Amino acid sequence: MAERIGVYPGTFDPITLGHVDIIRRGAKLVDRLIVGVTTNPSKSPMFSDDERMAMVRREVVGLGDNIEVVGFDALLMHFATQQGASVIVRGLRAVADFEYEYQMAGMNQQINAGVETIFLMADVSLQPIASRLVKEIASYGGPIHKFVTPTVRAEVEARVAEIGLKGDRG
């Protein structure tokens, strides 16, 4: 039987406990899970591509030997094909996520019907977490320790102090 490869794509700016939960659980469903760290300039990233790659690599250590972190700047379905993936893993927090993800899965299926999309519900305790909100809370000096690991928290707080963030950056 061929190796089942999955891709879990995202900007991970920053990686949250919700992302880590989906990575841990998604890795159990495939032989190899590729965490695809993508560029998305429209989201005004707080961290550079290299910083996000390093952050994700550090946070997935110990989650499984079948997890690999790869950066990409391409159409997701092209990236999935390049990686030999047959599965896209997506996390869902709420109904609003489902509507968007359902539409994306349909478009992706039109591009490559050989790649299936699997939706994983975020753990109930992690459902409200969004990277955008973590950055916004941090920019106003709010506590983010319940949403990210201590190391990521320190990086976010240091970046906020460095650039003097106030309010939502996207």
Rank of each mutant, 00 (worst) to 15 (best):
M1K: 09
A2R: 15
I5T: 10
I5S: 00
G6M: 14
G6D: 11
Y8I: 00
P9V: 05
T11V: 07
T11M: 08
F12W: 04
D13T: 03
T16E: 03
T16G: 00
L17E: 10
H19M: 03
V20Q: 12
I23F: 03
I23Q: 03
R24L: 01
G26A: 05
L29Q: 12
V30R: 09
I34F: 07
G36V: 03
T38C: 07
T39E: 13
N40E: 02
M46C: 03
D49I: 14
D50L: 11
E51R: 10
R52L: 08
M53H: 07
M53F: 11
A54K: 14
M55K: 04
V56W: 01
G62I: 12
L63R: 13
L63K: 09
L63H: 09
G64I: 09
N66S: 09
E68V: 15
V69H: 03
V70H: 12
V70E: 10
G71I: 00
G71W: 07
G71K: 14
G71E: 14
D73E: 13
L75G: 04
M77N: 08
M77R: 10
F79R: 11
G84S: 04
G84Q: 09
A85T: 13
A85R: 14
V89S: 02
V89E: 07
V89K: 03
G91N: 02
L92I: 12
L92P: 07
R93T: 06
A94F: 04
A96Y: 00
F98D: 11
E99A: 09
Y100R: 13
E101G: 07
Y102K: 11
Y102F: 15
N108P: 12
Q109W: 04
Q110G: 15
Q110C: 04
N112V: 05
A113S: 15
G114L: 01
E116N: 13
T117H: 05
I118Y: 03
L120C: 05
M121A: 13
M121T: 10
A122Q: 12
V124Q: 07
Q127N: 06
S131M: 04
V134C: 07
S139R: 12
G142I: 06
K146M: 05
K146N: 11
T149Y: 00
P150D: 10
V152S: 03
E157S: 05
E157Y: 06
V160T: 06
I163C: 00
G164N: 15
G167M: 09
D168S: 14
D168N: 15
R169V: 14
